[in-house]
Lab assay of single mutants.
Amino acid sequence: LETFPLDVLVNTAAEDLPRGVDPSRKENYLSDEDFKAVFGMTRSAFANLPLWKQQNLKKEKGLF
């Protein structure tokens, strides 16, 4: 999966995202380093959170 810089994904409308980016899964296009910096946890820890908590975190970080 291709990764993009944080500033390309945060608070970006679906139509302005790079081609192929799923707007409902912007976090998947962050590098592992950016993911950890944004969410303060690994991808696996994030995946283990309840869906509502994942969505709330994504909203807080501008990735929803």
Rank of each mutant, 00 (worst) to 15 (best):
G20P: 06
R43V: 03
L6F: 11
S44V: 13
S44H: 12
P23D: 06
L30Y: 01
A47E: 12
E60V: 08
F39S: 00
L1H: 14
V10H: 05
T42M: 08
P5Q: 05
L9N: 02
E15L: 06
G62T: 01
Q55P: 00
E27A: 02
M41V: 05
P18H: 03
Q54W: 00
K61T: 08
D16I: 06
R25D: 03
G62V: 01
E27G: 01
S24R: 12
Q54D: 00
S31F: 02
R43D: 00
G20N: 11
L9F: 06
R19G: 12
G40H: 11
L63W: 07
K36I: 15
L6T: 04
N56T: 12
P23H: 07
S24D: 14
E15I: 11
V8A: 10
T12P: 05
L51M: 13
L63P: 02
D16M: 10
L17H: 04
G62D: 05
P5W: 03
E2T: 13
V8Q: 11
V10W: 05
A14S: 11
F4N: 02
L6S: 04
Q54M: 04
L49A: 02
P50S: 08
T3I: 12
K59W: 11
A37P: 00
D16W: 07
K58R: 07
Q54H: 00
N48D: 13
Y29T: 02
G40R: 09
R25C: 12
S31M: 04
T12C: 10
S44I: 13
V38K: 01
F35S: 00
V21G: 03
F39M: 07
P23K: 07
Y29C: 05
L17K: 02
W52A: 09
D7Y: 08
A45R: 10
K53L: 14
G20Q: 08
E15Q: 12
E33Y: 10
L30W: 02
V38E: 03
L6R: 05
N48I: 12
M41S: 01
L63R: 02
M41H: 01
R19V: 15
G62L: 05
Q54F: 00
N11T: 08
T3W: 12
S44Q: 14
S31C: 07
D32F: 05
K58H: 01
L9C: 04
L57K: 05
L49Y: 05
K61G: 05
Y29F: 08
K61S: 08
D16K: 10
P23W: 02
F64I: 12
S31L: 04
K36A: 14
P18M: 03
T42Y: 05
P5K: 03
R43G: 01
E60P: 01
D32T: 07
F39E: 00
M41W: 02
V38D: 00
L17G: 04
M41R: 01
Q55W: 10
A14P: 14
Y29H: 12
R19F: 15
P18C: 06
E33G: 09
T42N: 11
L63C: 06
T3G: 05
E33C: 08
S44A: 14
K61N: 12
P23G: 07
F64G: 15
P50R: 02
F46C: 00
P23F: 04
S24K: 10
F4W: 13
S24L: 15
E15S: 11
G20H: 10
V8R: 12
D16Y: 07
L17I: 06
Y29M: 03
N11Q: 09
E33S: 12
V8T: 08
A37G: 09
A13D: 09
N56W: 12
D7R: 08
K61E: 04
V8G: 03
F35A: 00
S31V: 03
V38P: 00
A13G: 09
L9G: 02
K26Q: 05
P23E: 07
P50Q: 04
T42D: 14
D7V: 10
V8I: 12
L63T: 01
E27H: 03
Y29E: 03
N11S: 10
P18S: 04
Y29R: 02
N11D: 08
E27V: 03
N48R: 14
G20Y: 08
L49V: 03
D34T: 07
L49S: 02
K61H: 11
K36D: 12
N28T: 10
N56L: 12
K26V: 15
K61D: 00
P5Y: 03
L63V: 04
K26C: 06
P5T: 07
L17N: 04
N28P: 02
L51G: 09
E27Y: 02
S31P: 01
L6I: 13
Q55R: 12
D7T: 09
T42W: 04
E60Q: 11
V8S: 08
T42L: 09
F39C: 00
K26Y: 04
P50V: 04
V8P: 01
L30T: 01
F64E: 14
A13Y: 06
R19K: 15
N28F: 11
L6P: 07
F46M: 01
D32L: 07
M41C: 06
D34R: 01
E27M: 03
D16V: 06
D34I: 06
R19H: 15
L1Y: 15
N28A: 14
F39A: 00
A37I: 13
L1S: 12
P5N: 04
L17V: 06
K61W: 06
A14H: 11
A45T: 12
F64W: 14
G20E: 09
D32N: 09
P50F: 01
F64R: 06
E2Y: 08
P5H: 04
D34V: 09
A14F: 09
K61F: 08
L57W: 04
S24M: 15
L1V: 13
R25I: 06
W52V: 09
L49H: 01
E60S: 10
E60M: 11
A37Y: 12
M41N: 00
L49K: 02
L9H: 02
F35Y: 02
R19Y: 13
P18A: 03
P18T: 03
P18E: 04
L17D: 03
T42G: 10
K61Y: 09
V38A: 08
L6G: 02
Q54R: 13
A37S: 13
S31K: 06
A37N: 13
L57D: 01
N56S: 14
G62E: 04
N48T: 13
L30N: 01
L6Q: 03
R19N: 15
L6W: 08
K26F: 05
V10A: 09
R43S: 03
F39P: 00
K53Q: 14
E27I: 04
P18D: 04
D32H: 07
Y29P: 01
P5M: 04
K61V: 14
E27F: 02
F35H: 00
F39I: 03
G62Y: 05
R19T: 15
P5E: 06
A47V: 10
V8L: 15
L51R: 10
G40F: 06
E33L: 10
E33A: 12
T12Q: 08
S44K: 13
W52T: 09
L17Y: 06
